[in-house]
Every structure is written in structure tokens, then in C-alpha cells.
Design a protein around this nucleic acid. Structure first.
Lengths: 253, 253
DNA sequence: TAATACTGTGTATTAAATACACAAAACGTA
DNA sequence: TACGTTTTGTGTATTTAATACACAGTATTA
């Protein structure tokens, strides 16, 4: 509800609403003592060896000029997940995207105009496969590491999603969503190093991934690199799916 | 919204509402095209070497005689966490309890009377410290492993919280919330074995916990056991808090 | 053809997880 | 009071996983 893609539930063909409309809708909710529900998407991308997040400029006066996540009110006949996919589609044009719910944020004062509970979703997209067509509200990629102020409690949402990602990427193969289908081990390692903010030993990194036996050698090589090209691999999802999950990891805290 | 502790937001002094009232409130939401927000608590306890969950009989006709989680609509001036703590307090009389948000469930058809998004919370309480005073709606502890049918999508919520617990207990010291302050290593191991549904080697289990260096020998021994009594330990939360967290666990999936 | 910047590979060392057995302590009971 | 039962408390050898580390080869550019 912090952007112009907010839609009036009654409208059959979707259209952007102005800031005044949003304020009106939310004030109405507030007056009726109703809690609104929104979904906010933390959309991560990886480019130039850095983790990026997709943000827009907030519409609200109070947050003038502050960056905000991509969110919208949940429609009445729409699952939460559907709402998240809709927001992604509207903003990036992408449909088959990694998306997962992270956490609900429902503090009473989190939205200035009304009581709104939001569900934060984390999404990973391959920036190369994606052209930002609609650039409303200065839709742009931002470096995660150098972000300062954000609108609402969106910084908190982003931090939660980033921490979630750091943990999740070590236990699940989501990182590949941020890379081209075919990637070099160097790219993969850069991704992990950027997200986890650590330096990893190259040989041990390779050993680890090869031992998992989920990377498939495509027989192709990198092109357009100013040095010896590396082999290109792809991730074998089928093999991963068939792998039996262990629910026992070892106690440690 | 599946129990008699549902409250009318307008009422200043809280009072139980009947099943008819609930249906009316929800129908009103539904007619107005409003999405309701509730919190459902999955309250785990540990007794007789088994993991238990606290349930009540559903009020709704449709779910007559089915077991349901403890939940309620979120009040307009109440954070989500507060709502969860309130539900716990109202049902168990306990205040200082382990409680954590797990996941939001918002499928369109999940509640028969209206569109309701619910936030599932997981709570762990020590059954010994706790006397069920209010036994409305047949509030009872149930074995987690032998549960069959449940009302609404509460089975799904319970499963999500149970899986969350299995994972979480290996990485965070929440298990101690289910035990007395002073406990033997046998009790601790039984707890882990019950929750994770595995058999663990006793010597390696002890070695692991001692190596974490977070258990404090109280100098006391078990009493009323028909065998050699074990030493009683307590968990040192301070030491745990001061421990530096590692965000690097090692990639593995 | 030399400088640059990366790829690809193996081994030795250290740390952690696992498998496993027996004496001692308390209780109940004959 | 002695014996059976049950559980406690302890150590080591083995296997597995994580870490640290160096050099030759290949493509590109100047």
C-alpha cells in the first residue's frame, strides 16, 4: 500500500491509484477499526558480484523520498502467496520465480495511516533474465550493504529477509535462482561470499559442491572473460529432489 | 476465532462470546469484504517422555467434535505478539513463556465462515509448572504423534510448527523451556529423542552438551527415581547469550 | 611474447562425529 | 543383607568432515 499499483478491489481492470486514494482507503480502514493486510516483497538480485534489492520511492508524504519495498494490500479472494506473485509479476514481469514467506510484521504503529499487518516475502531473481520495464516510482536495484534509510519499518523487513537468506542459502539450493542457468564455479562462490560476507577457500568450496554431486558439467566454457574461461555447470534439481532429507543435523548452539 | 474467548473489540471488559456471536462477527467481515486476522498458538509441552500439544474442542458446527488450536482474532490495538501472549495467558495462566512466530496462513478458503488470515505461533511450556484451571471446551493435552483429525487447517499449522520445532531445537536452546529448571541429562536426552524421533547415543549426547559448556552442575541429585539418581543440571542462559553467534554453518543440502 | 588474471587439481593436518563396554550407585525385593 | 534390576558416569579408537595451503595451465590484452 505504499505505491501506485495499489488496486481498488472493485475495479475489474487494474489501474494505478494516486497517493490520495491510498490514504483514503487506509483512513477508511482506520475509521472502521479494521486491520489491513498487505504483502511486501523483498526481491533480491545478484549483479556485479553484489547482492541487490529492488526498491521504489514511497508515495506517502511522511516518507517522502525514502525507499520502500514492493508491496500491496491483499485482495479479498487471493491467497497470500498469490498476492506476492502478483506483486512480482506487476513489477518485474516475471512469473516463475523463487518466492517464500519469511515473517509477518504486525506492530500497531508500523504504518502511519492505519493498522496494517504485512507478510514479508523473500524473492530471488536472476537480474540478467529481467528487464525493468515499468520504472514507476524510480524502481531500481540497490546494494544491500550500503542502504541507509527506508520508509515504514521496511528496513526491519529487509534485515529479517536478509538474515533469513543468509541462513537459508546454506541449507537449500536457492542461490541458483540468482545466477544464469549455466554458471561457473567462480560465479557461484562469488554469490556465496557476497551473501554471507565471508571469504571462502576456493579449493574447499569446489570440493564441497562436487561432493554434493548436484552440479552437472555442461561441457561448455565461459565466454567473454579476460582470462582463462571456467567450465559452466548447471544445477540438477531432479537429483536434489530425489535426495533424502535428513532431519538430524546435530545439536549445536 | 474458534473458541469462546473471542472478544468483541467494543467491549471494555472482556467476556466470552457464544458460537452464534462468532459466526455473526465473521459473517459481518465476510459481507463487508474484509479479511480477518487471527493468531493461533501451538502450545507444546513435554510429559511422560512424550511431546504434547494443548487443544480444545472446536465451537463451530462444521467442525463439531474436532480438535482445534488455541486462537483468537487480533484486537485492533494489539501487536501480533501481544495477541499470542494474551491467548496463552487466558488459557494457561502463564506469562513468561517461550513464544515465537512461525508462519502466516492465508489461503482463501481456510476458514468456513469468512476470509481469515492467521499467524501461527509456537509456544513451549513446562507442564509441571502449569495447572490447567480453565477447562472450557475440553482443553486438554494431546500426544502429537497420535493425533488424527483437526478442525480448520489446524493440522497443517501444527505440522508446520512441529517441523519448525524439530529444526529449531537443534540450533537454539529452547528445549529447556519444556523441562524443570533443574533436570538430569537423561531427561534432556529423552526430550530430544521424543521431539526428533531418533535414538541417540548416551555418551555422545553427554559429550556434546558438556562440550558446549552451557550446563551448570547444581550439585543436586534426582530424587524418587527407582535407580541410581543422576546429577541435576541447569542451563546457563547468561553464558549462552554472551556466546558469539556464528553465521557460517557450512553449506550442505 | 610477456604480463595479467583466472582455472584446475591433491594432500597433509586438524577437528568433529561416531561406535562401543564396564564398574558403581541406588532401589526393590526376597 | 544380599541379590537383581536399572540407570549413571566415564574414555578411547575409528571414521568422517573441515581446513590450510601451492603451482602449473590457459585465455586475454597490451
Amino acid at each position: 500500500m505504499n505505491q501506485e499499483t495499489i488496486h481498488n478491489e472493485a475495479a475489474t481492470d487494474r489501474h494505478a491509484v494516486t497517493q490520495k486514494d491510498i490514504t483514503t482507503i487506509l483512513k477508511q480502514l482506520e475509521n472502521d477499526g479494521i486491520i489491513g493486510i498487505s504483502v511486501d516483497c523483498v526481491i533480491f538480485g545478484f549483479d556485479d558480484n553484489e547482492l541487490k534489492v529492488l526498491l521504489i520511492k514511497s508515495d506517502l508524504e511522511k516518507y517522502d523520498n525514502k525507499w520502500s519495498l514492493l508491496g500491496d494490500l491483499v485482495n479479498n479472494h487471493e491467497d497470500l502467496d498469490e498476492a506476492a506473485y502478483r506483486i512480482l509479476r506487476e513489477r518485474t514481469g516475471m512469473d516463475d520465480v523463487y518466492l517464500e514467506q519469511v515473517k509477518a510484521f504486525g506492530e500497531v504503529g508500523r504504518h502511519p495511516a492505519a493498522r496494517v499487518v504485512t507478510i514479508a516475502y523473500c524473492s530471488l531473481i536472476n537480474i540478467e533474465h529481467h528487464q525493468l520495464k515499468i520504472l514507476d516510482n524510480e524502481l531500481h536495484w540497490h546494494r544491500v550493504t550500503t542502504l541507509t534509510e527506508m520508509a515504514f519499518d521496511h528496513r526491519k523487513l529487509l534485515d529479517a529477509c536478509y538474515e533469513w537468506l543468509q541462513k537459508r542459502i546454506q541449507e537449500h539450493p536457492l542461490g541458483f535462482s540468482l545466477l544464469p542457468k549455466k554458471f561457473s564455479l567462480r560465479e557461484l562462490q562469488n554469490l556465496y561470499e557476497a551473501i554471507l560476507d565471508v571469504k571462502l577457500d576456493r579449493r574447499n568450496f569446489r570440493k564441497k559442491f562436487f561432493s554434493m554431486d548436484l552440479l552437472e558439467d555442461t561441457g561448455e566454457l565461459e565466454t567473454d572473460v579476460p582470462h582463462r574461461p571456467g567450465k559452466l555447470y548447471k544445477f540438477n534439481y531432479d537429483k536434489y529432489q530425489k535426495k533424502e532429507r535428513k532431519k538430524w543435523f546435530g545439536i549445536d548452539f
